[in-house]
Design a protein around this nucleic acid. Sequence first.
DNA 1: ATGACGGATCTAATCCGA
Length: 265
Amino acid sequence: MPFSVATWNINSVRLRIDLVRHFLAKHRPHVLCLQETKCVNGSFPHRAFRDAGYRHIAIHGQKGYHGVAIISRRPLSDIANMQLCGKDDARHITATIEHRKRPVTIHNFYVPAGGDEPDPKTNPKFAHKLAFVREMRTRMKTIAKPGAILVGDLNIAPLETDVWSHKQLLKVVSHTPVETEGLERARAAGQWVDLMRHFVPPEEKLYTWWSYRSPDWTKNDRGRRLDHIWVSPDLVETAKSLSVLREARSWERPSDHVPVIASFS
DNA sequence: ATGACGGATCTAATCCGA
């Protein structure tokens, strides 16, 4: 019996609930982690998920911005959220699910975008992003353990092949060296395995996000890999497949991010 | 050719995303 986890920055769960329904009906992941739900917990579309067979939901939302959720076909336990950088801004939620009598703990993150200017001295949003990633690293002592999965919109494209042009994006927020090095330090501190790159060789381009501002996202394929699935080393041998649902970027009124799905035996 | 868009919000223009 396989076990699958999906992550998707939905950019408003209420606006795109029909796309989520379609995705769940077609792919049936055991767990779906959403980011940018953009609604308070009281406005979360519980019924649509319940009707789709996903009765177990952990949400951490707020008005208008950010917001994360873990949606599951099986019971969730140990639901909690962390406040990084001392802010209660709905950027993390965790829950645990049983798989083959073993607990699998999922951490769902939405890392700050970081604004335009990649200078922490002049841009407080970029300073916040760097501090957030540093704090993720210091918290790995508690969250990185056997049977753990860390997913989410980490808003950083770490490898040269995670962006359409490494050279042109070196000074663009999401791919600057201070960000990619910070993310790598956080990953290494938890001994996490970058599961997407376990399946897709680092030589190959791999994206999960394409800007809304391009009139035709398929034309030049100027994407970035901002969404990630990291797993603890013990889970690597059980991982069976990984897919990036590129087609979702062409759905009607799409999110600018597409779902990433990992399957485990 | 990093914005030409798109979402939420005290429905109008402003903030935010990355």
